[in-house]
């Protein structure tokens, strides 16, 4: 599914990723944890091709294709989805309109017919219910006036509608109370399948109680410094990142 080899990337003049390697097979859930400034969010942005995030070395393949050769929207159409940590507002553009364009852009890339308004509405309503958002959210402007928790649920709704191959969840748990966390986790779990893979970026072990990862990786100073199974997250929870010593300090700086 996804192969990252020796990835180096910088933002402006600062090198953030310093030789990150990771392989994800279809159906797997990988959690990425690490101290602030380790490069967790950067990884999501680099993979999805955000402007200003420059790859200086390494390779990334998604489904056998050279991901780094593709434009941002092409990567999305290849099935890469990023759930944003801080989703931005687009005033006046309704969620419905935005998602319909988006779903149909994906369908077009797959050589499928666009959905009619009625077909789309049906799917959108289901997805809305699944993340416990009232249906009038479809009519509201994208993220316009949404609370933090609503924004996160809205991201998961988009993920459900877009049916991506690889989902990157960038701190989808931050700022959520326990009920909202459960809703987000349920939404994610409902989408787990043998074909779909997840990268769950989180600061806290808490989310992983709800979304059980197959692997946990610790990212520090732009590299994966330790990998293990779900128990590694518990260890981190107990010990913190102090054991990383100088590396974590440096990354924080």
């Amino acid at each position: 599914m996804l192969k990252i080899h020796n990835l180096h990337a910088k933002v402006e003049d600062k090198t953030i990723l310093k030789g990150l390697s990771l392989e994800i097979k279809p159906g797997e859930v990988h959690a990425i944890m690490g101290p602030n400034g380790a490069g967790k969010s950067t990884l999501g942005y680099v993979l999805s091709g955000r402007d200003g995030y420059e790859v200086i070395d390494g390779q990334v393949e998604l489904g056998g294709k050279d991901l780094l050769e593709l434009e941002t929207e092409e990567r999305a159409r290849e099935g890469l989805f990023l759930a944003f940590q801080y989703p931005v507002e687009i005033p006046g553009v309704s969620n419905m309109e935005f998602m319909k364009e988006s779903v149909n852009a994906m369908r077009e890339a797959r050589g499928e017919e666009p959905l009619s308004a009625a077909e789309f509405l049906k799917k959108a309503k289901e997805a809305c219910k699944q993340v416990h958002l009232p249906l009038d959210f479809l009519k509201r402007g994208v993220n316009e006036g949404f609370s933090g928790g609503e924004k996160k649920r809205n991201e998961i709704m988009q993920m459900i509608l877009l049916e991506p191959k690889l989902c990157i969840l960038d701190e989808s748990d931050s700022g959520l109370d326990i009920d909202a966390l459960q809703v987000v986790a349920d939404g994610v779990n409902s989408q787990r399948s043998p074909e779909r893979s997840f990268i769950v970026v989180t600061h806290y072990q808490r989310l992983l109680d709800y979304i059980k990862p197959d692997f946990v990786h610790i990212l520090a100073d732009g590299k994966i410094v330790k990998s293990g199974d779900a128990s590694l997250a518990l260890e981190v929870e107990k010990e913190g990142y102090a054991w990383l010593g100088g590396k974590a300090q440096e990354a924080d700086a």
């Binding site: 941002t72 929207e73 999305a76 159409r77 989805f81 944003f84 687009i90 935005f98 988006s102």
Partner: peptide, 10 residues
Amino acid sequence: QLFLCQQRGL
């Protein structure tokens, strides 16, 4: 905003 749209395939 632009990045959000592009990440969603537009």
